[in-house]
Design a protein around this nucleic acid. Structure first.
Length: 916
RNA sequence: GGGCGGAUAGCUCAGUUGGAAGAGCGCUGCCCUUACAAGGCAGAGGUCACAGGUUCAAUCCCUGUUCCGCCUACCA
């Protein structure tokens, strides 16, 4: 007796709400080091606390959940550790926008109240994404949800900072850094996105100091920085200019004279005019060159990337008074136009030419960043990078797909020191203090009142605020106002979340984690840094595998973005097609090394797949009344033995694909097995048994039906957790939830090569009959009489055994006997590979379609025959190809020739029918 | 500028340790056959980007070319 009935169509909503809640209530996802089983741990890439679930998360999280559910069912001690990232700049921007709407600003609030305000915001809105993750069915251990600014994780950050400082791997220095004039903070190199734009290459004429009638033409894309020039460089081997090295030029618009230096690194003989202006305070290369030639650095821009005010400008650059007036306070863009005018008027501007160039933009707000001279904190990265290179080279960390390995190694070998200080308020404040007493007081910034601390002021670095200055005992200490790069705390994620620096049981059990699943976009931001920090502080890799998945794009291959309006909202899609459908879609499209172009039709297709599964379960439930007997596999009916064999194959295949992270291929296996093998053939094959009361095979067939369906649900569960749970609960089963059942293991006793062979013949025969039916315009419902036969006596014998199935699946009455015994008249004969079927032709049938088909098949057979025979006639092929290949070709020629004869025969008979 | 990946059916993509080209969607025809029309059955559709080379045999291996993505980079 079926315990429940299922609705006619699958309605995901009710099912999903119920089970996602139920799973959590029952605590299935809670992990504990005491649990048995080999540990399997994944830490989630913590999404920004400001975020909401986008389709990239959906992909990333679906893949992890598949792995986690799979391993959990395999009996591993499984932990999927969730959390969110405080996302310094991004979050600060969100809250600042809110303040702006209220007519406030962070400066007006002050640091303390602002940070309080962000925490408030986090408390009310910060869990959006977590709730959405639960909706997606993610089987994270939510009891262990972490936030990068939680107390424990902050403790880890302090510990790491202090130890790196003590090891000499963190230092404070004055450098050119990437500055975002909108976020008003430094950025690391990788936080800058480069974009190619059309600019101009300007030619400026700098007259020689001792011979103003001659001069140098320098080429530049940024004429507005010329007031900050402190030298001009030429190549020391350049015959055009070599003699000028050591002389001076007069810097236009100013009263300054600057030297001409020889520099073979900065100057490319081939490019531009061969002469380059050097502006050490506003260009990375020029900064380096300035260092090489001990040039002064003249800053002409303020923190907003505007020109300094009139006084500052004239003082710093010795610009002519009218020039300083004209330029003061202008933005870079406006200053460029103005300078162009001024130079043009003074005759120093030569013809500019169009020029492609890359501009850097802030990855958070897309504002053009400026190279900016300032004092920042840096991580000395090479000592950390070296071991991180080695573990990948040695295979202790495997990157999948492997092709990204070189990318990683290349970047790591050329890595630059990491600028970790940010001039924002939301984040981990740098644990460094400065003594105001010893240093005679600090100036404060006009903008936000931060103390301005010179490079020569020694920091006191400690995990907590020192009581007093070790030099002078003063308690007048000022903490460094900067906070750390968000990615600094993220880098510690695999061990900080497990309790480090405490030596917890969790840390011992789950570190190193098993695999890190992530998109390529944060390979350098995050993955590389986790590897470095893990090796440094845990002495071991943070994970063994790094699986890198694709980026999700829209159907046209465009990057999804709000401004383009092409964003697919996973929540909307989940609502429309069901969570299982979107999960399965993303898994099926996760082919390595290729971006995902996501179209809604695909999701719809897998919604249909879910519905198909649902109806297969309904079918099973309809026919489960009556006893069920478990016979040994070998004693079961042909359809049962066949489907068990195919199921065993599916189990092997899915497991192998999961082991190699081929989610896409696993999905194909499921689709093929469930839809085409299980539904299209198996369920059809057993209908006669199920629909016959008291059928002798009934009890065993019902058992196999349940057994295969139940196993398939467990096999599929990691991919489609909701529908499989719902069906599993409805059909006969043991246990409380599919979540905690064993994952199917391949069963050798199920393998039945003979049944598979029988099936191939059955499928081929039924296919031919059905084709014939269409050619003769017999409607699908009409019973038709037909003959079947095979050249091979073994096969002929198999056909006899299959007779009932043939008749049932072809909807007709089957006569099995050799084709030479068939009636000559009124028969459409179709032939493939020795197999013949003959379908009785009724009086009023139009034979044209059938004749066309026969003619076409004869042609194709001929073509193939020629091709294969041609190869066999090639002496070199026969002498050099392996014997089994040659034998195969010979066999093929024989079969084709036979088929051809029979087909021609059939055609003639059909034509004869036309004339009678 | 350097590196990587891609080019296979109308579309989106699998695949081949080299030996008869695959799926899904879409399309065409016939069917509401008592699990499913979100369905069933049958079918059409491809010199596997181009040019060379290796081989008995290349969609697959090698070289070059073109086009498209991505990463990276200081050509002022």
């Amino acid at each position: 007796m079926a315990p429940f009935q299922l609705e006619k169509g699958y309605d995901p909503k009710v099912v999903e709400t119920r089970w996602s809640r139920e799973w959590l209530t029952r605590g299935y996802f809670h992990a504990s080091p005491e649990q048995p089983g080999q540990p399997y741990c994944i830490v989630i890439p913590p999404p920004n606390v400001t975020g909401s679930l986008h389709v990239g998360h959906a992909l990333n999280h679906s893949l992890q959940d598949i792995l986690i559910r799979w391993r959990r069912m395999q009996g591993r001690n499984t932990l999927w550790l969730p959390g969110t990232d405080h996302a310094g700049i991004a979050t600060q921007n969100v809250v600042e926008k809110q303040l702006m709407a209220e007519g406030l600003s962070r400066e007006s609030l002050g640091r303390e109240r602002f940070v309080e305000r962000v925490w408030q915001w986090k408390a009310t809105s910060g869990n959006t994404i977590v709730n959405q993750q639960k909706q997606l069915g993610e089987s994270c251990d939510w009891d262990r949800l972490q936030f990068t600014m939680d107390e424990g994780l902050s403790k880890a950050v302090l510990e790491v900072f202090v130890r790196l400082y003590e090891d000499g791997l963190i230092y404070r220095g004055e450098r050119l850094i990437n500055w975002c004039p909108r976020c008003l903070t430094a950025l690391s190199d990788i936080e800058v996105e480069h974009e190619e734009v059309k600019g101009k290459l300007y030619h400026l004429r700098y007259p020689l100091a001792d011979d103003p009638n001659t001069g140098l033409i320098v080429a530049t894309t940024r004429p507005e920085t010329m007031l900050g020039d402190t030298a001009v460089a030429v190549h020391p081997d350049d015959p055009r200019y070599r003699h000028l090295i050591g002389k001076k030029v007069r810097l236009p618009l100013t009263t300054r004279e600057i030297p001409i230096v020889g520099d073979s690194i900065l100057v490319d003989l081939e490019f531009g005019t061969g002469a380059v202006k050097i502006t050490p305070a506003h260009d990375f290369n020029d900064f380096e060159a300035g260092g090489r030639h001990s040039l002064p650095r003249i800053r002409i821009l303020d923190i907003h990337a505007n020109m300094l005010n009139e006084t500052e400008l004239s003082l710093a650059t010795k610009a002519h008074p009218d020039v300083a007036t004209a330029l003061a306070g202008l933005s870079v863009q406006k200053a460029r136009t103005k300078i162009e005018q001024l130079l043009s008027t003074s005759g120093a501007l030569e013809n500019p030419e169009p020029h492609k160039m890359a501009v850097g933009k802030c990855y958070r707000c897309k504002t053009v960043v400026e190279p900016y001279l300032s004092i920042q904190w840096f991580v000395k990265i090479h000592p950390l990078a070296e071991p991180a290179i080695k573990v990948v080279e040695d295979g202790r960390i495997r990157i999948i797909p492997e092709s990204w390995t070189n990318n990683y190694l290349g970047w790591m070998r050329d890595i630059k020191d990491w600028c970790i200080s940010r001039q924002i308020w939301w984040g981990h404040q740098i644990p460094a203090w400065y003594c105001e007493e010893c240093n005679g007081g600090f100036l404060r910034s006009k903008h936000d009142n931060r103390p301005l601390i010179d490079l020569d002021v020694p920091p006191i670095v400690a995990k907590s605020r020192p009581e007093k200055c070790p030099q002078c005992d003063s308690s007048n200490l000022v903490q460094d106002p900067d906070v750390l790069d968000t990615w600094f705390s993220s880098a510690l994620w695999p061990f900080s979340t497990l309790g480090w620096p405490e030596q917890t049981l969790e840390l011992k059990t789950y570190y190193p984690t098993s695999v890190l699943v992530t998109g390529l976009d944060i390979l350098f931001f995050w993955v590389a840094r986790m590897i470095m920090m893990g090796l440094k502080f845990m002495g071991d890799v943070p994970f063994k595998d790094v699986y890198i998945h694709a980026l999700v794009r829209d159907a046209e291959g465009q990057k999804m973005s709000k401004s383009k309006g092409n964003v697919i909202d996973p929540l909307h899609v989940m609502d429309q097609f069901g969570t299982d459908a979107i999960r399965f879609t993303l898994a099926s499209m996760a082919s390595p090394g290729r971006d995902i172009k996501l179209a809604e039709e695909r999701i719809e297709g897998y919604r249909n797949f879910a519905n198909k599964i649902w109806n297969a379960a309904r079918f099973a439930l309809m026919y489960l009344d009556g006893p069920r007997t478990a016979l040994p596999p070998a004693q079961r009916t042909f359809p049962d033995r066949w489907i068990l064999s195919r199921l065993a194959h599916a189990i092997r295949a899915v497991t192998a694909e999961l082991e190699s992270y081929r989610f896409d291929r696993a999905a194909t296996v499921f689709y093929q097995f469930i839809w085409h093998e299980y539904c299209d053939w198996y369920l059809e094959l057993i209908k006669p048994v199920l629909q016959t009361p008291e059928h002798p095979d009934g009890a065993s067939t019902r058992h196999t039906l349940v057994e295969t369906l139940e196993t398939t649900m467990r096999l599929l569960h990691p991919f489609m957790p909701f529908i499989t749970e719902e069906i599993w609960q409805t059909i006969p089963h043991q246990g409380d939830s599919i979540v905690v059942q064993n994952y199917p293991a391949s069963n050798e006793a199920w393998a039945a090569p003979d049944a598979e062979q029988h099936f191939a013949l059955l499928e081929q025969t039924v296919g031919l009959v059905r084709t014939g039916r269409v050619l003769l315009n017999y409607p699908p419902g009409q019973q038709i009489p037909f003959h079947v036969g095979h050249d091979d006596p073994n096969r002929q014998n198999q056909l006899h055994q299959l007779q009932r199935h043939l008749a049932h699946l072809s909807r007709g009455t089957a006569e099995v006997r050799p084709s030479h015994n068939w009636p000559a008249a009124r028969l459409l004969r179709l032939v493939t590979e020795g197999l013949s079927v003959g379908i009785v032709v009724a009086e009023d049938v139009d034979l044209k379609k059938a004749l066309d088909r026969l003619a076409k098949q004869i042609m194709e057979t001929d073509k193939e025959l020629q091709r294969v025979d041609g190869k066999l006639k090639n002496a070199e092929f026969v002498s050099k190809a392996p014997p089994d290949v040659i034998a195969e070709h010979r066999e093929r020629v024989r079969t084709l020739a036979r088929d051809r004869a029979l087909l021609t025969d059939s055609e003639q008979q059909l034509r004869a029918m036309l004339t009678t």
